[in-house]
């Protein structure tokens, strides 16, 4: 393992942990603006996480070791996955790190622990949330594989690092393919981060919750860990979308200026994407659970189209 790579690990993890809460608040702010009001400050998630770390962690009397271990395990899986997606600096990958299929399944491991957490306290809403989450996961998994397969076909590699390097060096890629790819990745982003129309992250209706239902019993530092891991997951998927579709500005060399510039550019691109996510969420109502496969089919269809085009053209 080269010194470069260790430096990359530290840098990437630091960046992703520090900027994830910003994007979460920004989406909330955009949604508030569409509702005609000011909304929370863009730094609100930071304040909330800081406060949660100072609160007591209560466990339900029915909770087992799962409730103590799962938040940490979930965060560990997400942080490992964060090493797979370069945000500001693309370097040489080491070992299997960067493999897109492994990335997907690290996210699934995190989701698995979250589902166990929802079941552990024995409450009805946690159970419903877990069961819905696993159903959504089972349906979205093949679609995600096909989308990633499409990525692999377009960039001729299974490694995210190489994909981004290819995206940067190739300049402007074949435009129609990019649009289809962007749509598919955007749908995956919405589904994985449990946003409208799949789930409402700000809902107070316990009977409709998916993601929120699983964390109803969490408090204190466990809640902070779960909220932060969801935020980091969102940033990783945003980075995948941003750095593959609009890769200009990513640092490919180890120089402070390039990396700083890359960070600023990534922040700007992330803010624009947050604006798009917020506006998209505000423009429609939440779909009913059994209608969701229809949405996934769009991503599946576009990705299959890309694969066919790449294979035959």
């Amino acid at each position: 393992m080269s010194a470069d790579f260790v430096l990359y690990c530290i840098l990437n993890t630091a960046v992703v942990v520090l900027i994830s809460p910003l994007f979460v608040s920004l989406v909330k702010k955009v949604k508030a603006w569409t509702q005609g009001r000011q909304g929370p400050s863009v730094f609100q998630t930071y304040y909330t996480l800081a406060k949660l770390l100072r609160k007591e962690t209560i466990y339900s009397p029915h909770a087992s070791w799962v409730s103590r271990v799962a938040p940490v395990a979930c965060m560990a899986a997400i942080l490992t996955a964060s090493l797979f997606v370069p945000l500001v600096w693309v370097t040489e990958p080491y070992g299997g790190i960067g493999n897109i299929i492994l990335f997907l399944y690290l996210l699934v491991v995190a989701r698995f622990f979250m589902a166990l957490l929802g079941l552990d306290a024995g409450s009805a809403f946690g159970g419903m949330g877990s069961s819905r989450e696993m159903s959504v996961s089972a349906v979205i998994e093949p679609t995600t594989i096909v989308v990633f397969a499409a990525l692999a076909f377009v960039f001729k590699t299974l490694n995210i690092f190489d994909m981004m390097a290819a995206a940067v060096s190739a300049g402007t890629l074949k435009t129609p393919i990019l649009i289809l790819l962007a749509i598919s990745l955007f749908i995956i982003l919405i589904v994985e981060t449990s946003r409208i129309p799949v789930d409402n992250p700000e809902t107070h209706l316990e009977l409709t919750m998916i993601h929120e239902g699983m964390i109803l019993e969490q408090s204190g530092k466990n809640l902070a860990l779960m909220e932060l891991s969801a935020a980091i997951k969102q940033t990783l998927l945003m980075a995948l979308l941003i750095n593959l579709i609009v890769p200009w500005g990513i640092a490919t060399t180890l120089s402070a200026a390039a990396i700083l510039a890359a960070l600023v550019i990534f922040l700007v691109k992330g803010c624009v994407l947050s604006l798009v996510i917020g506006t998209f969420e505000s423009s429609m109502a939440k779909m009913r659970f059994f209608r969701l496969p229809g949405l996934f089919m769009m991503a599946f269809f576009f990705s299959t189209l890309i694969v066919i085009i790449e294979v035959f053209a």
Binding site: K31, T34, Q35, G36, R37, I196, P197, N200, E202, T203, L205, S282, S283, M284, A285, K286
Partner: peptide, 16 residues
Amino acid sequence: MLTDVAFALGSSQFSV
């Protein structure tokens, strides 16, 4: 009703 289907943009028209 609009809040309960997660269409906050529509709901805010009426709550205002």
